[in-house]
Amino acid sequence: YTAGIIGFCSGTGDMRKVVERYAKARPGNPLERFLPALRAVEGSDSHAGLGEPFTQAWVKAAEDSAFRAAQDAERDAAYFDPAVEQAEKDGLGALGQFIYYDAYVMHGAGDTEGSVGFRTMRSEALAAARPPARGGDEKAYLDAFLDARVAAIGREPSHTDASRVESAQRVFVRQGKLGLETPLRWKVYGDSYRIDGS
Rank of each mutant, 00 (worst) to 15 (best):
G117M: 12
G114K: 09
A83W: 08
R130N: 02
A87I: 04
K89T: 10
V116G: 04
A83K: 01
K60I: 10
F98V: 15
G136H: 00
R134I: 06
A140V: 05
A87M: 08
F80D: 05
A78S: 12
Y141G: 06
D81H: 09
D81A: 14
A129H: 07
A140E: 12
V116R: 07
Q71M: 15
A125C: 10
A103E: 07
A70H: 13
G136K: 04
Q71N: 11
H107R: 07
D111Q: 05
H107V: 11
R122Y: 06
A70N: 12
F118K: 09
A94S: 10
Y141K: 00
Q86L: 15
A83L: 08
K60H: 08
Y141T: 08
R75F: 15
V84L: 00
L95R: 06
E113A: 15
S65G: 08
V116Y: 07
K89I: 06
E124H: 05
D64Y: 12
S65V: 10
D111L: 03
G96E: 01
S115I: 11
V84P: 01
Q86N: 10
R134E: 15
H107Q: 06
Q97F: 09
R68D: 09
M121I: 01
A61E: 13
A69Y: 01
Y79M: 07
I99M: 08
A87P: 00
L142W: 03
E85A: 15
Q97D: 07
A140G: 09
G135A: 11
A103G: 02
Y100I: 06
L126C: 10
G93P: 04
G114N: 02
A62T: 06
P82D: 02
V84C: 04
V84N: 02
S65I: 10
D76E: 13
A133H: 03
A140M: 06
